[in-house]
Amino acid sequence: MNCTQAKRLIQLHVGDDLNFAETQLLNSHLIQCSSCQQQHSSMRRSMTALYSLRDAAPEPAPSVWPSISSTILGQATRDRSFRRFNVQVAAVSVCSLLLAVVTIVQTLQSLRPSYPDTATLWQTPTAGPARFSFPPKIQNVANAAEQPSPGPQPSATGNWPDGAQDF
């Protein structure tokens, strides 16, 4: 065992953290190494100082259980009331949502214009199969479009417009 290994064992030995074999090994090294002996004694001194803190802790405070108990019981009560509250809120929310949906649907239906059915609106009253036709205003435009164009006309002077003479 060299001194580096021995120093590590010394650090554990001062707190009784070595097993029997390790302790034997360390002791055999300490017998023949004065440097490690010094290390061992200085380590023991510092540990003695550290151990002085063991009994120096102030007296513990009174039991914390009463306050912990009241906190736990208070939390349990809050949890229970929170669960009840949750159920109520959920039920009320669902009902409100359904009511709102029904109201919106009814309002939309009342706002909708009451047009007659398109199939009957444009159906010709005369006998025969239903025929699609344009609404009256569009019908006029359509009729105007169907009339043949008079074509280019000679002006009052008898001249044709440019390019119309070829026809």
Partner: peptide, 17 residues
């Protein structure tokens, strides 16, 4: 933990000295 313990004791010894 053993390694840390050895290091901690060494640190404490150095700081104490």
């Amino acid at each position: 933990i053993r390694w840390r313990l050895a290091e901690a004791r060494k640190m404490f010894r150095d700081a104490w000295e």
